[in-house]
Amino acid sequence: MSGGSLGSREIRLVCRLQPGSRGIDGILEALKAASYTLDGNNILRGSLRAELRATSLSGDEVVILVKSAEPDEFRSFLNLLVRECWYVDVYYHLRGGDIKAAAGDLGIQLPEDGVYRSRVRFSGVELKVDAYPKHGALTVSYRAGWREVNSGAALRIHEKILGMGGGRGIIGKLLGWIR
């Protein structure tokens, strides 16, 4: 009997659709046109594995969970989404050992207990940090639009939070990150 092995990194994308848009259908068509494979709720292309998780009843938001992706593939995916959406809120959920490293990279000293909330700037973007040190959980989020993706800030944030900066080895670069 297994306890259920889980990874420690997830990315949640909350896509706010443009007023008057065709809702999720517009996003799905754009994904198909860009050669993404749609299999049920799964979105696949290259190293990217993502899943449609929820849609608000009012149809104004769509939640997508990115399970794995090379940085370039992630940037390309985000690029497509911000074209179709008003904006995309990007959430990085880290657990366990990853949280201290990620907080340290962002220049944050986490307390041992309680709920920690802060805002830091990186690459000209304001990042919101929510940490629950007692539970070994950290969430970093920011709002991505055209500017954040085209300026390369989104990719730099991605690499910073997931520890994929210049120091990463060739194997790591080949593998991307895997849950």
Partner: peptide, 11 residues
């Protein structure tokens, strides 16, 4: 238990 901010894995 846990808030939406935890991602996919609750406490």
């Amino acid at each position: 238990f846990g808030p939406i901010a935890l991602g996919e894995v609750p406490e």
